[in-house]
Design a protein around this nucleic acid. Structure first.
Lengths: 212, 212
DNA sequence: GAATCCTTTTTACAAATGTTAAAAAGTTAT
DNA sequence: ATAACTTTTTAACATTTGTAAAAAGGATTC
């Protein structure tokens, strides 16, 4: 994974390392983009130049609730969660493991302060593309605009799919759904975070687990 | 509203009337499109030619769960709900009143059978654009592709915003949020549908209402 | 106006979930 | 290995919500 990157610089603020992709080899990010919607060679080459990569230690915030963040993120390796607080309780919107894109939805689309934070649950390597580059690529390359629309469609589709589960499933059913969808991550996600994702208390989740 | 449309044909299957927009006057739909992202004159003119409009009586399904529907709908007047059944209970995903777009998300984006139905809660006038036209307009006109991406962004943003509410709010808080967001529709939405939207029983909603 | 149908409220009881606190189990650091 | 710390489980009790059934209220039809 790290092999195709070359260390370039240190970002002191987040204590993380910045890499630059080698242009002669296709990264996981580019493969994923191509998978969603194939890019022209020109678009691909220009995209590569815009991508920056950092390493985030476990427990480090990638972006923060209340602040505008207009970056398209891609998890190269590791695991992150979208979360926020309400009445002192932490709620988890989603997890993103390696090979997934994520954004601060409100910020990326509407220039609004992010409604949730994103935190690295493990040491996590994340590439990102600035919105201005994203927008420029959209306008310059038809194939990239196509990718953009499909990417956003996936975001919308996933959100609505999750919405349905929350509406009609009880906690036990939601847990079963969680195991089905995130089963491969079960060992990497704490009980507290799982409860936060399910929208129930840690105690209730413990009860559900022991019932089986 | 009806003044700018001209009766053209009868669609026997849905017992509804088909109209065609007059090209010399801008409909609410076009105003809304322009509001989301301004179109070029050419795109606007071609879009107009693709739009068809129907009247749905109260209680009529606009599209049905389990069937693929690849149309972009716009509510000219009236009110509809997205809903589906789970264990015999009806759940409501969202309401759309006049001047709003809606789609069967799974179908429109992924060619999958719709995961919910849409029903007219009142006599409702709906315009629609076929996906193939939508796609063609995207590829032909940059301004339309821009609109498409922004439209999808709004869908994604709204879905995630709703998701948050369902995760952390209890029924009483959700009802307060409902009143805030859909207050102007309160008289037009039944208690049963409101309960279905909040994900609680009709009885519980009645209790919450009487508590005040 | 009576009858009918549909919606909303109320009642009583059962089940699910939250809260708080303590105990148990597992991790990490020294 | 021990101590300190974190995560998970268990217990007891309060609150919320669901279910089923009946009552009340509104609207529509004849």
């Amino acid at each position: 994974m790290i092999g195709i990157w070359e260390i370039l610089d240190f970002d002191i603020i987040t204590s993380s390392i910045i890499f630059e992709v080698n242009e002669w080899e296709m990264s996981d990010l580019l493969k994923k983009v191509n998978d969603i919607s194939p890019l022209s060679v020109e678009a691909l080459e220009e995209l590569v130049k815009c991508i920056q990569t950092k390493v985030y230690d476990k427990g480090i915030l990638i972006h923060t609730e209340g602040r505008v963040n207009k970056q398209l993120f891609f998890v190269e390796s590791g695991l992150v969660k979208h979360f926020y607080y309400h009445d002192g309780n932490q709620f988890v919107l989603r997890f993103f493991e390696e090979n997934n894109f994520f954004i601060a939805t409100d910020s990326f689309f509407n220039d609004l302060p992010a409604e949730y934070s994103t935190l690295a649950l493990e040491e996590t390597v994340i590439s990102h593309l600035e919105y201005d580059d994203f927008e420029r690529l959209c306008q310059k390359y038809h194939s990239f605009e196509s990718f953009a629309r499909k990417f956003v469609s996936i975001v919308a589709y996933t959100a609505i799919s999750n919405l349905k589960g929350l509406l009609y499933l009880d906690a036990t059913e939601r847990y079963a759904k969680f195991i089905k969808e995130y089963g491969h991550l079960q060992q990497r996600i704490s009980l507290g975070d799982t409860a936060g994702y399910l929208g129930i208390s840690q105690v209730q989740l413990s009860r559900i687990r022991s019932k089986k």
